[in-house]
Design a protein around this nucleic acid. Sequence first.
DNA 1: GCATTGACAATAG
DNA 2: ACTATTGCCAATG
Length: 122
Amino acid sequence: MSRRRRDAEAGVPFATLVHRTVRRVPAGKVISYGGVAALLGSPRAARGVGQVLGSLPEGTDVPWWRVINAAGRISLHGYPGMLQRMMLEAEGVRPGRGGRIDWARHGWRPDGEAPPPRGRNG
DNA sequence: GCATTGACAATAG
DNA sequence: ACTATTGCCAATG
C-alpha cells in the first residue's frame, strides 16, 4: 500500500487537510505551498495545494492569502494577486526590497516542526 | 480511466 | 536575476 500520507490522516480528503493546515497559519504570517504540503505529509504536493486553494468558495474561513510560493512571491496574477497583496499588507506582511517576502520575518511554522522553506534563499 | 490544467518547486543555461 | 525545462501531485472534463 503506498501511503503518500500518514496513516493517521488516511481517509481524509486531501483538500480537507489543506484547509485545516492553512487555517492554522496566524495573521501576519505566511507559508509556502510546499510548506503546507510538507505539513500534510506530502512534501511533493505543492501543486495540489494550489489546486485546492484555487477552488475555495468566497467567504471561506480558510486564509488562502497567507499562502505564497517558495520564492516569497505571490503566485496569483492580475486582480486576485492584487487582492492577496492587500490582505497581506493589512496584516503587516509586505514584500521587502526586491518584492519578496522574507521568510525569516513572516514565515510561519508550527512550533518547531517542519523546517522553514528555503526556495532559493535561505 | 486517460488527458488536460494549474495559486508549485528545483535545476540548468 | 530571468527564462526554459523537468518532475510532481491533485482536481476536473
